[in-house]
């Protein structure tokens, strides 16, 4: 009994994350008794409980660049979402909200299980190029360029009206992550993640070293981190918090850490400039 509790405890961040992700998927999908649908629309723009409008700032930006000023409701929604990720940290979206994360995490899990070795290396900056390119193409074409492909809303549409073509696009993304590049989509290509990492560059929720000296130096956190470069300065004691915009706050490192050397903290007090304070 206590062994299974301990096992749960060692997956507490993963399980909370999955619960939030599944809740969000179901909120758009299921008509609950009494309440009805919790959220209408999809992750590009939605209305929660009939009152709260939320709009993805990346899509709003594309709309703006393609030559339209959004109406009031969508603007309010954009400001709310942008403010949230700006304050707390941009890529929280990636690991707590985006449904594609579940697809790519599954691919990664299976990759480990099947011991897939092949890995086409790509620079992580590639997603910035994809982001830039989709914005340039939006200006050139006058239509929301990324939305012609965006697997996030595609995933939600497929749940409502499944189609072979859409399913194949999602399957190819899964296979890409499974067979071609380790964490290929979320870690290297997705411009939505790149956008949120820029937007929430100075987000205040951070993986923070609790006290110097408590780290056993096992490196387990780095091994599970989907963006290992963000943890490197903390593990090598060059910084006492993860300040890189690429950190998705998934908490995988916290699940793994057995010495309790790191914690997720909301810190308002210290530097607002993302300059790590070196201790030790």
């Amino acid at each position: 009994m206590s062994a299974s509790l301990a096992a749960l405890y060692r997956r507490r961040w993963l399980l909370s994350r999955r619960m939030v992700q599944i809740f969000i998927v179901l909120a758009f999908l299921v008509d609950w008794p009494e309440i009805g649908r919790i959220a209408n629309g999809n992750l590009s723009s939605s209305l929660w409980l009939g009152v709260l409008p939320l709009t993805d700032p990346f899509i709003a930006l594309q709309s703006l660049l393609s030559g339209t000023m959004l109406a009031k409701t969508a603007l309010i929604g954009t400001v709310l979402i942008a403010a949230f990720y700006f304050i707390f940290g941009g890529r929280i979206y990636c690991s707590w909200v985006c449904p594609i994360n579940m697809v790519t995490d599954l691919a990664y899990w299976l990759r480990q299980k099947l011991n897939v070795k092949g890995n086409m290396t790509m620079p992580r900056e590639l997603r910035m190029a994809v982001l830039g390119m989709s914005l340039v193409l939006t200006v050139l074409s006058g239509t929301l360029a990324w939305e012609n492909f965006n697997p996030i809303t595609l995933f939600q549409r497929e749940l409502m009206w499944s189609s072979l073509a859409g399913g194949l696009v999602l399957l190819s993304l899964f296979l890409f992550d499974l067979l071609i590049t380790r964490r290929g989509w979320c870690g290297h290509l997705c411009p939505v993640g790149a956008f949120y990492s820029v937007l929430g560059r100075y987000g205040r929720v951070r993986v923070t070293a609790k006290q110097s000296g408590s780290c056993a130096g096992c490196g387990a956190c780095i091994k599970v981190c989907p963006e290992p470069h963000v943890l490197a300065p903390v593990v090598s004691l060059k910084a006492n918090a993860v300040t890189h915009g690429d950190c998705t706050r998934c908490g995988a490192c916290l699940d793994q850490c057995s010495s309790g050397a790191i914690a997720m903290k909301f810190d308002l007090g210290k530097s607002f400039h993302g300059i790590p304070i070196v201790s030790k």
């Binding site: 999809n42 723009s45 709009t55 709309s63 030559g67 006058g142 239509t143 809303t153």
Partner: peptide, 8 residues
Amino acid sequence: SACVRCGL
């Protein structure tokens, strides 16, 4: 350019 494909 104005439609964000939200499906509302």
